[in-house]
Design a protein around this nucleic acid. Structure first.
Lengths: 407, 407
DNA sequence: TTAAACTCTGCCATAATGGCCAATTTACTT
DNA sequence: AAGTAAATTGGCCATTATGGCAGAGTTTAA
């Protein structure tokens, strides 16, 4: 299978014209079709996930799920349960065990981001599933198999971690069978031009901001900056400067001013750390615990309400377990109808706006939701909020049947 | 029972023609049919598990379970629970205690990989079960019995550990009643040929990779390499070089280049060092809490399911323990047949599928297309393929006016 | 300044939706 | 293998939504 690099670049959303990024694209083209583990390295903010998605997309597994796991965000105590699932306890009547991510990704791809954060005990198990596809759910001794392609990523130097006994050498060798290293932005400054154009254009499309371009000397200044946060930092910077300079043409002075502000801010140590919160790992875990306790309390109170009353089904007044400012509760939004466009994450691709008919959206939503539900018409109708009867009609009217592959 | 060595080799998947590997095969043939403990030693990546499986397969217990336990992967706090089971606590409704691996392996074989990692307290209990078959579940005083053959493995020098008081001498002597030592790959370089052929062939079978063989001088270079990761490392190397060299005939230059990359990373002794798993008591407590939380979560889900099947009430929300942004499951890609845009990209964000109403899509499409056209209703209607009249109505019906900022 | 484009809403004929139902098939459990 | 729940499918009818049209008024751009 021969992959056309410009097409791959376009489909992946990987921006850049530098030699280094072309090397990365070449590597992707080479390894994507082959079932082999890939280790993606590069500084924070370089786009490791984009690379992983691109590999999956051009792999033989592109029609199967991809599961993305951030190992650095999962507390040690439950990471193995999450990855491998666990055996249901001895609760009477328990009919289902819990599937882990490796099971959910069967036949597909699993992306293990921040793999350097995985606990050592977990690394042993990862090695095994990598080599043989075998794993066991926590608390179970039955050997299960999964057929998963593993792409791992880290912004750390794993061989350093190996030296410090923080990462297993055997797993390291296994993961780095193929290594794709993403160059830092400062190593490919010529890519700043297309990035800036892209970010600016996207920003204007979704906001009331005019874009009149950057002066060439402004771009030059930006090319001399270090960009420790890489592409992510550049994106934030472009958006910020567009807002602050109110749609004017961006000059070198403006850029200097804003970058000076950046440089005058003390670089926080945690900018370089994989944990992007100002809390210890334990504190973060405690937060999770409290949040979940709160959620459980809600559930149990609702269950009690069901059991104790027949007709009053309004939601109960919830008493927080702990009044704590560290416990972030997202309050219900005032108008659920506005939720979709208010949470900051659009549903529709930016560059589709102004190009597509409502009909097209509708068709795609139907097809893909049907696939999502394994062609279950009832579930699809419910999910989309249309009547089942209508769904049947639309499938017929739009002649969608051939596009919905039966599972 | 006389065992035919070539047959045993074929059935076991043990590769090699060297004298040393024939010795290992001979040992297996000798001890497999006898109910006696075996200690398998050898460097990491040598294939200790394959040996253990082979022993089980040719033993009298081959028709009974084999339980594989990696002692290095189980946290100290729960290893005894895992191995010996525990008496179920005060959980209401729990009808069964928890079986450990020794109980599950009754009448069969238990493979204790990385036995050198077992805590000293656990070693005492292992010794007892090895000698008498007796054990007790954690929290219970009832003596139970199991009839299990134990095969243990380690990549460590256990006698060194004994000297350092990190391994019990009595257990050591018990385990090494019979010792099968697997030679490192560098001690049997003549086996590299069949390994390479085998790995290459397997790899071509499952991937679109041509295999044109290795040049003899390439094999010679490989035979001079140390292979600290042993067979496992060789396998990875073969696969990698086949991918990177694109199905060409592999030359010594190619091999040198790839091995140079490996050699430039300092060889570490960490395979030989104890893996430090130091947890604070607080961390252990958090682990326990998280596990119990997990269990509670499952219980409430079950209760909810029971109630739902009775009452069709689905207003409970089940929150994953982890923030959802740490786990992404990407549905399979959209059908390439659906060429909505010129590059075949779906219009709707993947993770929106199955989550949103058609209404939501509609609303967002209207809002964002209106913005795109600077609030021009006529152009928006035309673009979306709906009548202008309808657009006005939808803006009113959905109360979208405040969301459409006038320019 | 002026013509074209756009905004906005009432009205009416037609199209689409949702609810309901029943026969049939499929999926799941024991 | 049997039983049962869930899902599929499409007819029918009342209700709701859409599109076309028109006209009065406003805004835009040349």
């Amino acid at each position: 299978m021969k992959i056309d690099l410009p097409r791959l670049q376009k489909q992946s959303g990987i921006i850049g014209t530098s030699e280094k990024i072309y090397e990365v694209l070449g590597m992707i083209a080479q390894v994507a079709p082959v079932d082999i583990s890939v280790l993606v390295t590069g500084e924070s903010g370089c786009g490791k996930e984009i690379i992983a998605r691109s590999i999956h997309k051009h792999s033989k597994r592109s029609q199967t799920p991809m599961v993305i796991v951030n190992c650095g965000a999962i507390p040690e105590g439950i990471i193995e349960s999450e990855l491998f699932g666990h055996k249901k306890g001895s609760f009477t009547g328990a009919s289902d065990d819990r599937k882990g991510y490796f099971e959910q990704a069967n036949k597909g791809t699993i992306f293990l981001d921040e793999i350097g954060e995985a606990p050592l005990e977990t690394q042993v198990k990862l090695l095994r599933v990598l080599e043989t596809g075998e794993y066991m759910r926590v608390g179970d001794s039955k050997i299960r198999r999964t057929d998963v392609r593993v792409i791992a990523a880290t912004n750390k130097n794993l061989s350093d971690l190996v030296k410090k006994n923080q990462f297993r050498q055997d797993l390291y060798y296994r993961l780095k069978t193929v290594n794709i290293h993403i160059p830092a932005l400062r190593e490919r400054v010529e890519d700043i031009n297309p990035f800036v154009e892209r970010f600016a254009l996207e920003f204007t499309r979704s906001n009331e901001i005019r874009y009149r371009g950057f002066m060439p000397d402004a771009i030059r200044v930006m090319k001399q900056y270090d960009w420790p946060g890489n592409v992510r930092e550049l994106k934030n910077f472009v958006e910020k400067i567009m807002v602050l300079e109110k749609g004017e043409r961006i000059t070198a002075d403006m850029v200097n001013r804003e970058l000076t502000d950046v440089l005058n801010e003390p670089l926080m140590e945690n900018d370089r750390l994989p944990i992007a919160i100002n809390k210890t790992s334990e504190q973060a875990e405690i937060d999770i615990i409290l949040r979940q306790l709160f959620s459980l309390k809600q559930d149990t109170e609702l269950i009690r309400a069901i059991l104790s009353s027949d007709n009053e089904k309004s939601f109960l007044t919830v008493n927080p377990i702990l009044p704590s400012e560290d416990l972030k509760i997202i309050p219900p939004l005032a108008d659920p109808n506005m939720e979709v466009t208010e949470d900051g994450q659009p549903l529709i691709r930016d560059d589709a706006i102004g190009e597509i008919l409502m009909k097209d959206l509708e068709k795609e939503a139907i097809i893909r939701t049907l696939r999502f539900f394994n062609n279950n018409r009832r579930k699809t109708a419910r999910s989309l909020g249309v009547s089942e009867r209508t769904l049947y009609r639309k499938i017929e009217d739009y002649k969608l049947e051939p596009k919905i592959k039966r599972s």
